[in-house]
Computed example of a mutant assay.
Amino acid sequence: MRDFRYIGYPLFITLVSALLYQLVATYITGSIRDTLLILIRVIALFLFGMSLNKSTRRHMSVWKIVVAVVVTIFLLLYELGAFYLPYLSTVLAFFGVGGFFICMLYILCGYLFVD
């Protein structure tokens, strides 16, 4: 449960911000839409950075490194088009996980690898 704070909060911020971004992009029209999308990006990045900044001492665990490497390779191969999973594409599209939010997942994986 303790590891959920370090992994769960950044992942939660990523998923919620991706869903909020997708909802605004889909259902809001007009000139305010672009402003809201920029605000969501800025707030999401700011909260994501805050959630990664923990001042407590952590112990090295191998499973974090393995998960980070596997997820990074999986996302890279998926973006390169090496494989296609229709259900995964549907889930990612539902949450609005595109290039920007995949970059956030890359940042999370890099943080876990170094941590």
Rank of each mutant, 00 (worst) to 15 (best):
M1S: 15
M1W: 15
R5N: 14
R5F: 15
R5E: 09
Y6C: 14
Y6L: 15
G8W: 12
G8E: 07
Y9D: 04
L11F: 12
F12W: 11
F12L: 12
F12H: 05
I13G: 09
T14E: 03
L15R: 04
V16T: 02
A18F: 03
A18T: 01
L19Q: 08
L19V: 03
L20Q: 02
L20H: 06
L20S: 10
L20T: 05
Y21D: 01
Q22C: 05
Q22V: 00
Q22F: 03
A25C: 09
A25S: 11
A25V: 02
A25N: 11
I28A: 13
I28S: 10
I28P: 07
I28Y: 14
T29F: 12
G30N: 10
G30H: 09
G30V: 09
I32T: 10
D34I: 14
D34Q: 15
T35A: 15
L37V: 09
L37K: 15
I38C: 14
I40S: 14
I40W: 12
I40Q: 08
I40G: 12
R41C: 13
R41W: 10
R41H: 14
V42W: 15
V42Y: 15
A44I: 03
A44D: 07
A44Y: 11
A44P: 10
L45C: 12
L45Q: 06
F46R: 09
F46D: 03
L47H: 08
F48P: 04
F48T: 02
G49T: 01
G49Y: 05
M50P: 05
L52S: 06
L52T: 02
K54R: 09
K54L: 05
K54V: 02
R57E: 03
R57M: 04
R58T: 02
R58D: 01
H59S: 04
M60L: 11
S61K: 12
W63N: 07
K64S: 02
V69I: 14
V71F: 14
I73P: 10
I73F: 11
F74N: 09
F74V: 09
L75Y: 12
L75N: 08
L75E: 04
L76V: 09
L76D: 06
L77H: 07
L77Y: 08
L77D: 06
Y78S: 12
Y78I: 01
E79Q: 15
L80T: 03
G81N: 11
G81R: 14
G81H: 10
A82L: 07
F83H: 05
L85I: 08
P86N: 05
Y87E: 03
S89V: 02
S89F: 06
F94N: 07
F94M: 08
F95Q: 12
F95K: 12
G99L: 11
G99P: 08
F100Q: 05
C103D: 01
C103P: 01
M104W: 04
L105M: 04
I107K: 01
C109P: 00
Y111R: 01
Y111W: 00
F113Y: 00
V114E: 00
V114I: 00
D115P: 00
